[in-house]
Amino acid sequence: MHEKIEKLRGLKLLFVEDEEDLLSIISDALTKLQANFLTANNGIEALAILKENPDIDAIITDINMPLMNGLDMIKNIIDQGFDIPIIIMSAHTEIEYITKAEEYGVNEYLLKPFDFIKFIELITSMEIKKYVNR
């Protein structure tokens, strides 16, 4: 697990989640792991952060959020030409969300409640290209 945490520390992550309690728990744990991460409360905020931080290596997002949901945010990211791995974390397993996400090229999911061990396993097993002139 130590090697995986070291790999995690080498990534710049963006967590997009509107539930403040969950975002606080995730932030606390990532801070303790000395991870490099940013947070956003909705898709609009996430897009603004991404513009300011084009070196983000992966995005972990909820689907149901106010102002702009995760699927609309993913479509915007693709439309803007970003090629960033995205993990959907959601309590929703409805086939329509999964189908739409797969149409956008998202194949990685974490079901809520958020499980840090599963997250670390998933993020460190993904092929993530480090930021290179995006």
Results as ranks from 00 to 15, higher is better:
10 G>K: 14
90 S>N: 02
92 H>N: 08
24 S>G: 10
102 E>S: 14
14 L>T: 03
6 E>S: 10
70 G>S: 07
132 V>M: 09
103 E>S: 12
57 D>G: 09
9 R>D: 06
91 A>F: 02
121 E>D: 15
102 E>P: 09
22 L>R: 09
94 E>L: 02
13 L>S: 01
3 E>I: 01
82 F>M: 02
12 K>T: 08
115 D>V: 01
53 N>M: 01
46 A>H: 13
15 F>R: 10
6 E>Y: 06
66 P>S: 02
31 T>D: 08
111 L>S: 15
89 M>L: 08
55 D>K: 14
55 D>Q: 15
59 I>E: 12
29 A>S: 13
45 E>T: 10
123 I>G: 14
127 E>Q: 13
35 A>N: 07
47 L>G: 09
14 L>S: 02
46 A>T: 11
25 I>E: 09
109 Y>W: 12
79 D>N: 12
35 A>T: 05
5 I>L: 08
131 Y>Q: 09
102 E>M: 12
118 K>Q: 11
78 I>A: 10
133 N>Q: 12
39 T>F: 02
115 D>P: 06
19 E>H: 06
70 G>R: 08
4 K>V: 03
77 I>Y: 14
115 D>N: 15
85 P>F: 01
15 F>G: 03
79 D>E: 11
98 I>E: 04
43 G>W: 00
117 I>T: 14
24 S>A: 08
123 I>S: 14
11 L>S: 04
24 S>E: 15
42 N>I: 10
16 V>N: 08
58 A>R: 12
105 G>C: 04
57 D>Q: 06
42 N>R: 09
134 R>I: 05
116 F>M: 13
62 D>Q: 04
13 L>I: 12
17 E>P: 06
56 I>M: 09
62 D>P: 11
131 Y>D: 13
99 T>N: 15
90 S>T: 13
130 K>T: 01
109 Y>R: 06
101 A>L: 03
116 F>I: 05
120 I>T: 14
77 I>V: 12
86 I>Q: 06
42 N>L: 11
85 P>S: 08
1 M>N: 11
47 L>F: 13
123 I>E: 14
96 E>V: 07
127 E>M: 05
49 I>G: 02
41 N>C: 07
108 E>L: 05
83 D>V: 10
130 K>M: 08
74 I>D: 00
40 A>Q: 09
93 T>Y: 04
11 L>F: 14
43 G>I: 00
64 N>S: 05
73 M>T: 07
121 E>T: 10
9 R>C: 05
17 E>V: 04
114 F>G: 01
28 D>H: 09
107 N>A: 02
60 I>N: 00
129 K>P: 01
18 D>I: 03
33 L>W: 10
19 E>V: 03
58 A>V: 13
22 L>I: 11
50 L>F: 06
118 K>T: 00
88 I>T: 12
